[in-house]
Nucleic acid binder design. Sequence first.
DNA 1: ACCTGAACACCGTTCAAGT
DNA 2: ACCTGAACACCGTTCAAGT
Lengths: 208, 208
Amino acid sequence: MPRPRTPLLDRGRIRAAALAAVDRDGLAGLSMRRLAADLGVQAPSLYSHYRTKDELLADVADDIVSAVDVGDFAADWVGGLRTWARSYRAALAAHPNLVPVHAAGPARRAAALERADAVHGGLVGAGWPPRYATMIGASTKYLVLGAAMSSFARGFEDDVQVYLDRYPHLDQAHRLREHAEEIDADSFELALDAFLRGLAELHARVRV
Amino acid sequence: MPRPRTPLLDRGRIRAAALAAVDRDGLAGLSMRRLAADLGVQAPSLYSHYRTKDELLADVADDIVSAVDVGDFAADWVGGLRTWARSYRAALAAHPNLVPVHAAGPARRAAALERADAVHGGLVGAGWPPRYATMIGASTKYLVLGAAMSSFARGFEDDVQVYLDRYPHLDQAHRLREHAEEIDADSFELALDAFLRGLAELHARVRV
DNA sequence: ACCTGAACACCGTTCAAGT
DNA sequence: ACCTGAACACCGTTCAAGT
């Protein structure tokens, strides 16, 4: 096979194909060989563009985080946090199989670091002591990552018999799956609302 | 090799070795071959006791969940939630590499289902409508799983140079790692406190 | 019933060779 | 510079054979 005039691959095409494969087959279902096959090349060709599979996945995750909105801290910090959390959760929930990669932290991923920087700056600018800004950033991330990854509703089986008899309070649990998306979204909104409400109370006390 | 008088393996020993291996090498580092070697047998021997690696991991996860305390709902639901969330987070954080397995949901794991049942019953018994009880259970699980898995503080590098210049508000981020445990624990307490405070406000409104 | 060696169909990654 | 085939050191799981 002669080397083609224009390269067969580039990093963008590899990322797009990897994301599609992870959405389709799950994180465990992604292999460099299958990904290469999707792109019409052999597996080792990928290593001309990405040094490892992990580096590729980190880059895919950073693409997704680019859609997260941290621009609402100017007016008030509660609104800034709410916009951040909602857009963060929406971005992650669109590709739930990739959430474990986000969980690894920003480390050296540029888009993720820019967001962490903006959130911290927004909170400190609103009067939160740096230590609290760190904790609030962490807390919100816990909520978003937990919500995006764990899909409470999808964690139950839809077979009634599994829960009947032994778990009296779970007699409706088999119905969770069919409304999973709605329940997960509503649960996240409830959690965010309660959390921000509690934070606002705390804010008054911390400023003195 | 003759078959020994007493079996070399049993499910309990396999689970204990698997948990130790996951704590040591991470979830990705666990292989049935290495696990078998740790136990002094060949890999296929494991399949006389567990049908698949996934089934083994689900069982290990269920062992861990057995330590979670859901017995505090009798007096008041806020205290019940707090005890549940704290003991849940502590149990998971003791084996953070295993959190993705917990994230898969209770499904058919007995200990996990008993806890889900008790939490739902406790909340409904305290006057929450079933729909809210579901959402509160989900919300709390988001917080716990997110906190146990993502370790906000460990997500940053401890090299100063990585963040300097480009991310002005992250100028202290390289210090996060050395206080990671404390920061993660405090952040979780802050989140739980704010969340419960907000829920208490909501409770008053929902009961009318 | 429980354990073994051999085998099947996979992995991520490296490397010398081709253009 | 980019892609290839071959190879290395692994995987989870199955299965016939042993006791």
